[in-house]
Design a protein around this nucleic acid. Structure first.
Lengths: 357, 357
DNA sequence: ATTCACACTGCAATCGTTTGCGGAAACGTA
DNA sequence: TACGTTTCCGCAAACGATTGCAGTGTGAAT
């Protein structure tokens, strides 16, 4: 026989070698049946065993350094103390804080999250979810929700505990936690109007996402509230939350000769594109036009000018989503509810009173 | 008995209800023993079963929509087709691209990665790794390596397939894939020198990280190569890769009256702090002092001035790391090797010739 | 005709837990 | 003393796969 490959533990043949102890080991050591050891070890069933015995088992487990095997446990119980977390794109700075929020509250109660990237690809999403389900995850939080998202709808309807974060579906009772987009654009618009702006344009994000439509709807509402004219010209639909889309929209606006002194961008990336387009036309911000973004991404305070934007509490979004899911796991028949977190305006230097005419 | 809670599948009692089919189901349907079905389903053992039978089993499995239960499989085989990915902080924009790179190559061969955040906390790290091991992950890639990292050393020495990404340990034969820091600072320094700079300072990152010491070492080497004076005054050790640390370092330099026309920052965050400090003193960049960063984080091209920086191919770092680990899993006794990926300078507008004296 | 090799497949154990069921003490009550 | 309750614990069957071993049957070689 060749020498054992390096990097291989001596193997379980050897008698009391460093193999991680199993329940049977601690039972043997404690002089009880594995079943008893199991009951002693689990807080929920501990009352079924004599106090003294339980203590002994606990003691042995501790000195042996016993750790239950989650795989075996999952196989038996079809539970796993973990949930799936479905993210469209981790490299989007929006999502990591959400992940952190979720992980932090989950970790506090012994749960953990399995993160998957879908890259906005429905096929990857279904594959990932299927894979996670076969690993007995107990629920899901989706950050990939689209307005119309049959897959998630079916999943939730099928009884899988599900919560949405950051984005919601159009019409469904799936619990969600999102930022209060309407409130957010309301304060942004008030800010602009207070500054004296009257001709404000909106760079709307993709209309298959709740964030996109909600912000657009709120924009028009604000126009109405402030008695401003709601002209279709003052609106640009962007097909993606991307810098290039923002730039394109603004140059088109400029080319079309629509007059405006301020732009409310659907998110910070769009605002960034706006900066580019403005600079490309020799216009200054905020001198010639004010711009306000949405999200308060990292480093937008470093831009020049530092971007005024609506801050979304992403970490808290995640934390609340985790709470919601946990609650759902504990009491599946409790009535569902969704949460709207308040947004705040962070007033930096990309907004100023309009030039006098 | 109360009505079954909503959101619960009818349960396996019902005869042929939508319960995910097991191996036994397909075996029964195909008229073979589960063992045979297993062999037919696994490419590696398929040759052990009659071709015709195998086809029949495959066929049945397909129509039944059979998916093997990874938990049961893991329990039996102590393998899991997954690896652990240990990240210090997902909200650091450095890491998501690495994660993507890893996931992409892993996914290509049916593996997946379990991501854990350690928040730079050794206790969380050991806990997470322990938890992953008990889930039978087959190996680890660590992005958390410190120069001296006994935990990872022990783990690797114990035979667990391990690779390091982005950061390495001081002295160890654990395979790693990192950027060629030395090469990176060399081109950055050459760039500065070519521009005419002679008095260059370095903002060095934490010296317990390989990136920190390597860049510092390379800086001094470059000084020597270009015949520039290596004065301790021209060096600031920063205790963290943070903007505030960079700002502090530069203001100290300024306060101490050390003269310099360019700064090589250990990373982009430090460079950012540098911008702040310079602006705070009324100095212009690149007019008064040039600065070059490291990493090419997202959006540093949007700063003003856009930051000249050394780009690290993070995605490729991750991809290579995954390849290395995969290779190690397949051939554990192959000799280890580490990979250095070339770095490139992206020349933007934070560097310029020094003012004439 | 006997032996042998080979291809194929079934049996049963196993991975490490959990849990329904039943038995054996121990205890209280009549 | 007899009997019903508890309390505690062990037995054994799961959960869903993989795998060493042993068998069967076929065809070829002697």
């Amino acid at each position: 026989m060749p020498p054992p490959p390096p990097g291989t533990e001596p193997g379980p043949r050897t008698a009391s070698v460093a193999r991680r102890p199993t329940l049977k080991d601690v039972a043997g050591e404690a002089g009880v049946h594995p079943a008893t050891a199991s009951r002693a070890l689990n807080p929920g069933t501990r009352h079924l065993v004599n106090d003294e015995t339980a203590q002994r088992v606990l003691q042995v487990a501790d000195t042996l350094g016993y750790q239950p095997n989650p795989i075996a446990r999952s196989l038996k119980t079809a539970r796993s103390a973990s949930i799936g977390l479905v993210i469209p794109d981790l490299t989007n700075p929006l999502f990591p804080p959400i992940v952190r929020g979720i992980e932090d509250v989950l970790g506090g109660v012994g749960y953990n999250a399995w993160i998957v990237n879908t890259d906005n690809d429905p096929a990857r999403e279904t594959a990932a979810v299927e894979s996670l389900r076969s690993r007995s995850v107990e629920g899901f939080v989706f950050a990939t929700g689209r307005l119309h998202h049959p897959f998630i709808e079916r999943l939730a309807a099928g009884g899988t505990p599900t919560v949405l974060v950051n984005r919601r579906l159009a019409v469904s009772d799936i619990p969600s936690v999102t930022g209060d987009d309407a409130g957010g654009v309301a304060i942004a618009m008030r800010h602009l109007v207070d500054l004296g702006h009257r001709r404000i344009v909106h760079l709307a994000g993709p209309q298959d996402l709740s964030t996109g439509v909600n912000r657009l709807r709120a924009f028009r509402q604000a126009l109405e509230d402030h008695g401003l004219e709601d002209s279709p010209a003052r609106l640009k639909l962007c097909s993606a939350w991307a810098e290039s889309a923002g730039a394109k929209a603004v140059t088109e606006l400029l080319d079309d000769g629509v007059e405006f002194t301020a732009v409310l961008a659907g998110n910070d990336l769009l605002a960034l594109g706006c900066y580019d387009a403005l600079a490309g036309r020799g216009l200054s911000c905020p001198g010639d036009v004010s711009v306000v973004g949405f999200n308060d991404m990292p480093f937008v305070d470093k831009l020049s000018p530092p971007l005024t934007t609506v801050r979304i509490p992403h970490y808290e979004l995640g934390a609340e989503a985790a709470h919601l899911l946990l609650e759902r796991l504990r009491a599946p028949d409790r009535t569902t509810r969704s949460i709207l977190l308040p947004l705040t305006l962070v007033d930096r230097q990309s907004t100023a009173p309009p030039r006098l005419l």
